[in-house]
Design a binder for these strands. Structure first.
Length: 439
DNA sequence: ATGCTCCTGCGAA
DNA sequence: CTAACGTTCGCAGGAGCAT
């Protein structure tokens, strides 16, 4: 029996301020105050910008070479991305944040939702948000902003407003505002900032006169449903305070439905043997993840492509899927399938820039079928793979690899990623801390 | 008509 | 020196096929 009307939900979205930049600055205070950017894989694009870098007009995703002149003229500093460091800092931040709610959903490396429903009253929400922010700053040295709303979409939007408007001190809650004030904010923010509205959708919304968040909030749900999709219709409901998107339970991690490993090459390659090595190493990485989640794979896709930006060069891209009648998590079998596929789509007269593999049609290894003979083989295979995984876990990635991924001792292959300016793994590797001191 | 699988587009970080 | 442009995931919905 319920005696009270159901509580309006209060969802917080905590998000790191330029997270990668902030992680680097924690361990290297010399990076404070100057414009700083962090680059994507292969040192290709800018994926994190300090405020100073934003002020120089550097947009998100800019190819790095287009910003290089700013190094001279404005003292722009840059670093390759150090995912080991960011991943570890993220785990620590999430631990701290978990203490503020029994219901946490880790949404990405630098943000999580916290369900605050019933923990605080409307009037306390802002101060609770500020407390969260201060605590992360104190424990980890990482700046964040907190947005709070009755739905995830409004929490996201609140976070955006907190980030862009310093006067709030880093925490913004819809519940703290009058209805009139809420409308004013919705009218002030571009619809492009709404969670789920990307480049294409923005274009279409603009053509029918929807420019601000308010316009979208007021839009007719049926029209949105017909003209666009159920997804955007849900977004409209969420903007009206009707929570449609539930918190995802992260304590029961859901196995992935597909595992992708693909990378651009440090230098383009043409020769099949080199492509084989690259593909084999990508398969190895993906197969590790496959075994981590205790799945087997029934389908391996391999794809290759030339550089689409090199307009003067002949272009080619192709992919092929190899079904496996008997599911497996054995790197060797998966490599075999991938290389078979590679040979089918390889054309010798092109210069390749990128290759990748997709493991799909994944199933729980425990339930997976097999006859008596395959089962014996399989036990052997699992022993070998477990041994390799354990060694690599204990002594570091790539301690033991398969020969097909290339013998690279002291002579890294040209196709391997560029990362010319990576910081040390301060939180996970003693040897690299020592190195930092020596420098 | 209805139900499937496969594939593509889109958005997110 | 030049040229140089990320990765991984899930979801929705249309196309194409089978029933």
């Amino acid at each position: 029996m319920s005696t009270s009307a159901s509580l309006t939900r209060a969802i917080a979205l905590v998000d790191g301020n330029n997270f990668y930049v902030s992680c680097e600055r924690v361990f290297n205070p010399g990076l404070e105050k100057s414009p700083l950017v962090i680059l994507s894989n292969n040192d290709g694009c800018i994926v994190s910008r300090s405020q100073e870098a934003r002020d120089l007009g550097i947009p998100m995703g800019l190819p790095f070479f287009k910003a290089k002149q700013l190094i001279q003229s404005h003292g722009l500093k840059w670093l390759s991305s150090n995912y080991t460091l960011y991943g570890d800092m993220s785990a620590r931040m999430m631990n701290t944040l978990a203490q503020f709610s029994p219901d946490q959903e880790i949404y990405s490396i630098d943000e999580c939702f916290l369900d605050l429903t019933g923990i605080t009253s409307d009037s306390q929400l802002i101060s609770y948000g500020l407390t969260i922010k201060e605590r992360v700053q104190r424990d980890l040295g990482l700046p964040t902003c907190v947005g709070i709303g009755p739905s995830k979409t409004l929490a996201k939007l609140a976070n955006h407003i907190a980030k862009k408007n310093k006067q709030f001190g880093g925490a913004f809650a819809w519940a703290a505002l009058s209805q009139q004030e809420q409308i004013e904010w919705l009218k002030k923010v571009n619809v492009a900032e709404v969670w789920g509205v990307g480049r294409r959708l923005l274009e279409q919304l603009n053509t029918i006169g929807i420019k601000t968040v308010y316009d979208l909030q007021q839009a007719n749900t049926d029209l949105i449903r017909r003209r666009f999709s159920i997804v955007l219709a849900r977004t409209v409901a969420e903007l009206n305070g009707v929570a449609c998107l539930e918190m995802v339970d992260i304590k029961e991690p859901i196995n992935k439905q597909q595992i992708i490993s693909s990378k651009s090459f440090g230098e383009p390659i043409q020769a099949l043997p080199l492509l084989r090595e690259a593909v084999a190493s990508y398969v190895c990485r993906a197969a590790e993840k496959l075994r981590e989640q205790a799945s087997v794979c029934h389908n391996v896709t391999v794809f290759v492509r030339t550089n689409p930006f090199a307009k003067h060069q002949p272009q080619y891209h192709n992919q092929i899927s190899i079904p496996l009648s008997i599911g497996t998590a054995d790197s060797r079998r998966l490599i075999h399938a991938a290389c078979y596929g590679l040979e089918r789509i390889y054309r010798s007269n092109y210069v390749y820039k990128k290759a990748g593999i997709i493991l799909s049609d994944l199933h729980d290894a425990y339930h997976h079928q097999g006859d008596l003979f395959t089962k014996i083989d399989e036990e052997k295979s699992q022993q070998v793979m477990r041994t390799i995984d354990n060694l690599n876990l204990r002594y570091g990635a790539n301690t033991l690899t398969l020969a097909s991924t290339g013998i690279v001792v002291g002579n890294p292959h040209s196709w391997r990623m560029r990362a010319n300016q990576k910081s040390q793994c301060f939180t996970t590797r003693w040897d690299e801390i020592a190195l930092a001191k020596a420098c």
